[in-house]
Design a protein around this nucleic acid. Structure first.
Length: 720
DNA sequence: ACGTGAATCCTTTTT
DNA sequence: GGATTCACGT
């Protein structure tokens, strides 16, 4: 085991202070790139080295990725196994508590977790069952309402309704909750709320854990919501040492219920707290940090923190404004191209945007330049329809009362059971307070439904029972294999051509994921554990690619990551900050924090781009530059706007890059959006271009003659 | 019950 | 612009 001096040797003074601080209440304000995880990992390593038993430590994160990373780094640092340590996400830990004490928490033994998608489906059913109009009462809004209440720790009986509208949402919430309780389903927010309530009602169980955990450490504390905060506060015994690590300036999930106030008002809730600031940044150049500091400085009520570095200034921030979003994308792609040709790796670059809708144009430009890329964010593996369907068969075979799975597979593949049949089934299920499966059994026994539907239902009923008997003795992966081949899923997707083939490939991947899962523990039945694992860890986003690729993602998704070169795109009012955020100052501040997160992702070089005119949702908009752009000191910026031009090939060799500043003075340079005249067509504006060198063609919108494509070399265009 | 043209809706999404 | 839901027709 390594000695303390050795453990601390690689840390700066503030980091060392944070690692060895003996105060029972410690808040580490860790700026972007200041070694936050390092401190957490070293602090735990030090605890392990001292008197502390591994099982007395609880470390809480928000993502599985962060939890895994922490485990790994502790093991690398100490050489000790982290198995006895409780390190996990809020949700994962809450789940663990609930499984252990399911009875005290009033949950059935095999309760299942539903994801946001299943939740929405369930809510749709509820709205239908209450005979509400989906137009007037959008399920999405109901979902937001329910999750928001749960994030705030509120059950239907705690809510005082002030309006008829709220009253209706409350009815939906109540009905939804009943439905979940009856069918043994638990959504994400419920995990936390339920385990918090478990402790409220069972102080004996709480005391058990309070005594056990002598050291609680929380990562990304600025992202905690009301329930998570209350949960932590209850779990934390007065004699427990509590270490909170976070950055109020990087709180960007307020819209999901996270409360910046939790970190901002920390001193008022926990007395005698020592606050340590980590302000030395090891990631970025001083230019990038100055920009980030200047922007975030405009926010009110910050705990306050100024990042600095002993690195040099580095490159200036390059700002580019395109004529439209296509030119913005082309600028990025051609900049990438030239940097790649100088030997940079695609993986060194990240293209960040405020909303996913912006990715398409960027993608198209990258494809034109044949630059490999990967988009983060889309559907994750376990969220794919075919995966969820296959797993629903498995779930239903374990728990027949899982209505969510029942509905997913009752008519997939199509077996002649339509909406009407299902509706009457749901009606009788609700009347008798039973699950759909039970209602189905009743209906078959009593021959209660009409002839044609009855046959199909009987077939389904028998099919599931047969499937279950058959797969019962099999291993997890064999179970799934059998389900895929015998439930008709394979046949269904084989009929779907190319798309179906992709689905079949995904199902194969699922089976191999099961095989890997089995290897970990061969003795126990892995099925139930696998389903839990799937629900809590949705797997990596996107597909694995071969070779290095440029990274495209939202600024939210980029939090916690870093890249040598970062492009922040779409810096326009209405886009970033989003037009939705302009009403309230607090939302605007959150947008500004997001900007701060974006800027601080860059290590060496930062580009910020925007477009004068942008086509979004079908219509064209002229957006002024983002206010955040003006908040960056001009001295840090180099403007690239005028350097991107189209050259006339006859005067300009085809191989010359467009931004070559050594071109002869006789060259005629054109820019998108520029006014020109043509001997025949008169005045016009350049809208677009394609090709290069002698093949360059430009699209000009002429006042009189309308829009035309012209070969630049021959068209006698004159600048206006 | 299921497939096809129109209406409709748009932030961000760790679990 | 475009995916996704819908209402209608068969």
């Amino acid at each position: 085991m390594i000695k303390q001096p050795e453990l601390l040797a690689t840390l700066n003074q503030a980091q060392q202070d944070a690692v060895i601080a003996a105060e029972p209440r410690l808040l580490v304000l860790a700026g972007a790139g200041s070694g936050k995880t390092r401190v957490l990992v070293h602090r735990i390593a030090l605890l392990l080295q001292q008197q502390c038993h591994p099982h007395e430590i609880l470390a809480v994160t928000f993502t599985n990725k962060a939890a895994h990373e922490m485990r790994q780094r502790i093991e690398t640092l100490t050489g000790v196994s982290t198995r006895p340590l409780w390190i996990g996400t809020f949700h994962g830990l809450a789940f663990r508590f609930l499984r252990h004490h399911h009875e005290a928490a009033r949950l059935p033994e095999g309760f299942q977790i539903i994801d946001a998608d299943d939740q929405l489906r369930l809510i749709k059913q509820v709205i239908k069952a209450l005979s509400l109009d989906e137009k007037r009462w959008p399920p999405k809004q109901a979902q937001n309402y329910i999750n928001h209440q749960k994030d705030e720790g509120l059950r239907p009986q705690h809510i005082q309704t002030l309006s008829l509208i709220e009253d209706t949402w409350l009815r939906v919430y109540s009905y939804y909750e009943e439905q979940c309780q009856r069918t043994g389903l638990v959504d994400f927010a419920e995990l936390l709320l339920r385990s918090h309530e478990l402790w409220l009602h069972r102080p004996d169980i709480l005391a058990q854990y309070q005594q056990r955990f002598r050291h609680i450490l929380v990562d990304e504390f600025q992202d905690t919501n009301t329930v998570q905060y209350a949960w932590l506060k209850m779990l934390c015994h007065p004699q427990c040492s509590l270490t909170l690590v976070g950055d109020d300036d990087q709180s960007v999930y307020g819209w999901r219920g996270a409360k910046v106030e939790n970190i901002q008002n920390f001193n008022q809730h926990f007395e005698h707290t020592r606050v340590i600031r980590l302000e030395q940044n090891y990631r970025s150049t001083s230019t990038i940090l100055k920009a980030a500091n200047a922007v975030i400085d405009k926010n009110q009520g910050r705990l306050g923190k100024t990042l600095w570095t002993d690195q040099g200034d580095g490159e200036a921030i390059q700002v580019f404004c395109g004529f439209n979003e296509t030119e913005e994308a082309r600028f990025i792609a051609s900049t990438l191209r030239s940097q790649l040709s100088k030997g940079a790796s695609p993986a060194d670059f990240a293209l960040l945007y405020r909303s996913n809708a912006q990715s398409r144009v960027l993608e198209e430009a990258l494809i034109r330049e044949q630059i490999p890329y990967r988009i983060y964010g889309g559907l994750r593996f376990f969220e794919r329809a075919e995966i969820k369907t296959a797993l629903a068969y498995l779930r239903l075979s374990i728990n027949r009362n899982d209505d969510s799975s029942f509905q997913r597979i009752i008519n997939t593949p199509p077996r002649g059971i339509g909406a009407k049949t299902l509706e009457s089934l749901a009606d009788s299920a609700h009347q008798q307070q039973r699950s759909l499966w039970q209602a189905l059994g009743d209906a078959l026994e009593q021959q209660a439904l009409k002839g044609r539907a009855l046959g199909a239902l009987q077939a389904f009923y028998d099919h599931i029972n047969q499937l279950d008997t058959h797969i019962y003795p099999l291993t997890l992966s064999k179970k799934l294999e059998h389900i895929i081949e015998n439930s008709g899923l394979l046949g269904l997707y084989q009929l779907e051509g190319e798309v179906g083939q992709g689905r079949i490939d995904n199902l194969r991947e699922l089976v191999s994921a099961c095989e890997q899962f089995e290897e970990v523990d061969e003795d126990i039945d892995a099925t139930a554990q696998f389903l839990d694992h799937v629900s809590l860890e949705m797997g990596e986003r996107g597909s694995q690619t071969d070779g290095p690729v440029v990274n495209l993602m939202t600024m939210h998704a980029a939090k916690g990551l870093e890249f040598p070169v970062v492009f922040l795109t779409g810096f326009e009012e209405g886009l970033f900050p989003s037009h939705n955020a302009k009403e309230s100052p607090s939302q605007l501040e959150e947008e500004r924090r997001l900007c701060y997160v974006g800027i601080t992702r860059a290590r060496k070089q930062l580009y910020i781009t925007r477009a004068d005119s942008r086509r979004l949702y079908g219509s064209e908009n002229h957006n002024p530059p983002s206010r955040f752009l003006k908040e960056i000191p001009p001295s840090l910026i180099v403007n690239r706007q005028e350097t991107l031009s189209i050259s006339r090939p006859s005067l300009y060799s085809a191989s010359t890059s467009r931004n070559n500043s050594t071109s002869p003075a006789s060259d005629t340079l054109f820019a998108l959006g520029q006014g020109i005249t043509h001997p025949k067509f008169g005045e016009g504006v350049i809208l677009n271009y394609e090709g290069q060198g002698a093949n360059t063609r430009v699209q000009v919108n002429f006042k009189r003659a309308g829009s035309k494509w012209l070969v630049l070399q021959y068209a006698r265009l004159e600048a206006l």
